[in-house]
Design a binder for these strands. Structure first.
Lengths: 349, 349
DNA sequence: CTGAAAGCGCTTACAG
DNA sequence: CTGAAAGCGCTTACAG
């Protein structure tokens, strides 16, 4: 039995390419060629080899072949937080696409802290991932520059970096912001406010810009004092809504740069006894599962998450295989999903 | 310059252990020893070596050391779906714990399909992960048995397998079910129904058993006809609620084996104009972010997610390092979180 | 069509 | 305290 030496105290060692070569009476080179469809291997031998592989339950070691310069079929996904529904949905979209090509994805929740970003990137490089998809904020531009210099393939998802011309797939945030603004304007709202993320977040910046543009086109007044900057958290949305609704000239509609903020705003309104949507219309952004679950359900701008994940993965694969792939920026169109949190302004001017 | 040969057409190759050895004027064995704190290396040399490492930006290759039998510092996490908030929160808990020890986690969404489970397991083994945390349903017992036979360290999370005595960390689902039952009973409910998952899901089975026990102890009648089996989806919960509330003797309270079902039930009730909680109390299970976001907010049994993730990871590490670690089953206590979806029965008998 | 041999970047006895 | 050498499980020219 060629397997005899394979048993050690009752535990079977994994079969290696040597085991199958010996059993098949060929060299390891031939086994390797058979597996990879390289070189010429007679079909009888090939079949024979495959049979032995099955019999020995042989699984080639990705580790070993990676050491010879082949791919690890593993990639890193940097996101702020996997427990945030938006990023969880993004992760699923990427995972599904990756899995079709035998790729695995390592999750890296950064909490938007550069320190964590750097730690994760270092780990991922030591583990020789084939590439990274970056959907988290990275403040220090040197971090991305370093990645470029070390020739690590990356694509940005839902974020961008103005300084570096790096591949990216994003939703058309500007248009999404416009959709929100137009929707509320058409409902007759004239006093609106915005809950936005930090200006460093390119997507929020664009959404806000689009929103303002929609109002400007309709000569609806909007002042930067009507913008409240929040972190990406429910409580922050609530806090902001409480503040805005406490003002003398309180808004009749709120545009929130993500669903979490919108939900917080709904909670704030409820706490003050302000009815949504009758007294306050709210529109969010992202269209995560949360938007379907609130009461009333949230009107929001849907990001094409599945499409974004798919494109990001494919872009990364292109960069891996074509050494001189041109830089690309893929922009996907968002879509307004009208649910119950918006209605006509009750006191149109 | 020792780095001279390291530049190829403008791209810098990664430094290897040979580069730092040469630069430091020592052998690679010494560099290896210095890095791993093995053998004896004079402190002057050690310091010198570390300096060179920094200068060359040397990152040891996990791939290469894994090939020599060391760990890959990567583990697989099998869950039904990363975009389900409960599992996303579980993933984050595990990721955080893993990250503290330099571990990375690969996400594997199985959709509870054995076919996907097998594919993922095979991929993970080829990639030589150090172990797996399994928080998904696995119908075919041969799959887990195979893992055991091949000596792959695994720990089950939130799921169990009666057949195999495999390590597991779970919430005390039985007690959780009792908490729900007791809460509703104390509110005066006498006609209750349950939305449960498939009987194959050990956690749901236990929750149901605990719930029934709580009612039995109080002589509250409960019939198995009051159980509706659902998949783990909002729509399923809605469908079930619609059916239950259409019955002549409709229930005044619902216990749902997870938050998603509870939310569906709330939506079903609303569709029929049944007010929650005045006419229908609803309690969920899990305490995901969704429970805070519904209106009314959901009363639910909280699983100690962070604790479960931590324990699961630590258990796995124990199995990795101690070759004869005893089997363990860690049971964590859940906690009832009372919010707005439950209140006293309006027509107590 | 097939195989012997070198090599990927490390670790680990084993000498000295 | 330090280094030469073998080896992990593969792939890839290169001969034949």
């Amino acid at each position: 039995m060629s397997q005899a030496c394979n048993f050690i105290r009752g535990t079977m060692m994994k079969a290696t390419i040597y085991d199958v070569a010996k059993e098949a009476g060929v060299s390891i080179a031939t086994v390797s060629n058979a597996i990879n469809g390289k070189g010429k291997v007679s079909s009888k031998k090939r079949e024979q080899i495959f049979e032995i592989m099955k019999k020995l339950n042989y699984q080639p070691s990705v580790i070993a072949s990676a050491l010879m310069g082949k791919k690890t079929y593993t990639l890193g996904l940097l996101i702020p937080d996997i427990s945030n529904p938006f990023f969880a949905e993004v992760a699923r979209a990427i995972e599904d696409q990756a899995h079709l090509s035998g790729y695995s994805v390592i999750i890296c929740s950064t909490d938007n802290k550069d320190e964590r970003v750097e730690r994760y990137i270092s780990l991922l490089e030591q583990k020789s991932v084939d590439g990274m998809i970056i959907a988290t904020g990275v403040d220090n531009p040197d971090i991305l520059a370093g990645l470029e210099a070390r020739n690590v393939p990356i694509v940005m998802l839902s974020r961008e970096n103005d300084a570096l011309s790096v591949d990216a797939v994003v939703a058309d945030d500007y248009v999404g912001g416009m959709m929100a603004g137009r929707h509320l304007a058409e409902l007759g709202h004239r006093r609106m406010a915005v809950l936005s993320e930090n200006r460093k977040v390119s997507s929020s910046r664009e959404r806000l810009r689009g929103f303002k543009q929609a109002l400007a086109e309709r000569q609806i007044p909007f002042d930067d004092a009507d913008i409240v900057i929040c972190e990406h958290k429910v409580e922050e949305g609530k806090r902001a809504a409480l503040a805005l609704l406490g003002r003398p000239e309180k808004p009749t509609a709120l545009f929130c740069c993500n669903d979490l903020l919108a939900i917080g705003a709904m909670q704030g309104a409820k706490e003050l006894g302000v009815r949504v949507p009758e007294e306050l219309s709210i529109v969010g952004f992202d269209n995560t599962i949360l938007a379907e679950v609130t009461d009333p359900p949230l009107t929001t701008v849907a990001q094409p998450i599945a499409g974004m994940g798919k494109q990001a993965f494919q872009l990364l694969i292109e960069k891996l295989t074509e050494d001189d792939a041109a830089r690309q920026r893929i922009v996907l169109r968002p879509e307004l999903v009208v649910r119950g949190s918006t209605c006509a302004a009750s006191f149109p001017r």
